[in-house]
Design a protein around this nucleic acid. Sequence first.
DNA 1: CCTGCTTTTTACAATTTTTTTACAACTCCC
DNA 2: GGGAGTTGTAAAAAAATTGTAAAAAGCAGG
Lengths: 126, 126
Amino acid sequence: MGLLPVANAVPAYRDEHLTIDFDRQVAELDATRIVLTRKEYDLLALLVQHAGQIIPRDVLLQRVWGYGAEIRTRTLDVHVRRLRRKLGGYADQYIETIFGIGYRFQPFHAPRYFRQPLKPAFAVGA
Amino acid sequence: MGLLPVANAVPAYRDEHLTIDFDRQVAELDATRIVLTRKEYDLLALLVQHAGQIIPRDVLLQRVWGYGAEIRTRTLDVHVRRLRRKLGGYADQYIETIFGIGYRFQPFHAPRYFRQPLKPAFAVGA
DNA sequence: CCTGCTTTTTACAATTTTTTTACAACTCCC
DNA sequence: GGGAGTTGTAAAAAAATTGTAAAAAGCAGG
């Protein structure tokens, strides 16, 4: 008699502060539910499901919004901002901006992003 | 044991204010019978039998009305409204709207679905 | 075919979410 | 440091969803 879609059970994401139940589409931060709108959830879920990987803007816009490369919009930035707010103080720990490329979700303890200088930059003195 | 075997005895729902006898298809609010039409009862029963779970609109329309995804109607909203009216002052405690998804019945004391005010994000660092 | 009740539709108001806009702030490279 | 390009942000505008009252449509029993 199972009538509610419980078909494909995707394992939840969980770390020290954040839990995301992909089946129930529910997120918790420090054991308190954070209420996400659909787009917010979709975006967060996509990022978290690829934790540690940089996801380019155009991929996010394609997967969450269905937008093609020709569309110019700031809605991704705005949604990232709202997500970050809802992630409270851990926001920048979790969602990194990869300048010129896109965004990356990192588990709480993961090493942060540092851009690789193109030149070896050995000039120590100054 | 029981001299009068009850066919399929589904345990009734019961909380501080509301009782629903699924076998007799009868509901009581604060010990007073509330008269429900068939559709109203079907809808309430489905929600209550999955108390705590969000049930999407399309699932409700499928299960109670037999409608497929292509049908566009407001009858679900109207029935929810009438149910709420009959649930008196507890209405919004019991039947939550999950925007963009569907509805959820919550037992009287269950934690509610509400949006916490996004506070200005305390500096979390140690 | 009336009558009373239930259900659905309609039309619009209210609410919530999403997108756009406009500008500030930032990054990178010269 | 300066400038072009990118991202952050608040606020307004637009779009989508839900709430509601009232009319219309169905449906049984007489």
